[in-house]
Amino acid sequence: MNTSIVSEQQHRKLHPHKFALWVAIASILMMFAGLTSAFIVKSNQAGWRTFVLPGIFWVSTVLILASSLTMLMAIKAFKSRGMRQYRGLLGITFLLGAAFVICQVIGFNQLWNSNVQFKGASGAGQFFYAIAGLHAVHVIGGVIALLVIFLKSIAGKTKSYDAVPVEVMGMYWHFVDLLWLYLMIFFIILG
């Protein structure tokens, strides 16, 4: 079936997998739009508590921005058949992504220890755990996907020069990166 999925005339159009990812991105965006608008509604009510973002979240922001850059370079290398370079850059992207998740967890712990906790009154902190936590779950999904295509590129028996899976991976990765930037700015301004 694989060959017949994309017929001749469809080559000019957007690949269905890429298109499906765009729709999925819209869908994920709606979830975060729902959560951040809930945040805005609640922040106007009495008894709202704000919090100070621990500095480590700036580190994680730099990490994920850098990982987007390496992902970009990896795709470029893949397209020019620089497979060794591609594997290296993909590995670095994976490590940066994993480091991002670790930084987030450290950040959550610091925040928790500065007495922004679940119990009791509602506030920006509770939303931050929920929203940034859900974002981290999406990044973890991406990190696992990165690991899978990294391992495939090393141990795969068949050589594939089809750029679509790599490009789909890249699109998702840039998306979680931009999503984090949005959340970061959101919490700096409104948190």
């Binding site: 609640k42 509602s122 509770q126 859900l134």
Partner: peptide
């Protein structure tokens, strides 16, 4: 469906937090 179900999911996530983690959403 694709644009509205995720919003339900966000509502349910916060509900789970309230049920088990003691938050006050």
């Amino acid at each position: 469906g694709v644009l509205s179900f995720p919003v339900l999911l966000s509502g349910l996530v916060l509900l789970m937090f309230d049920r088990h983690l003691g938050t006050s959403f």
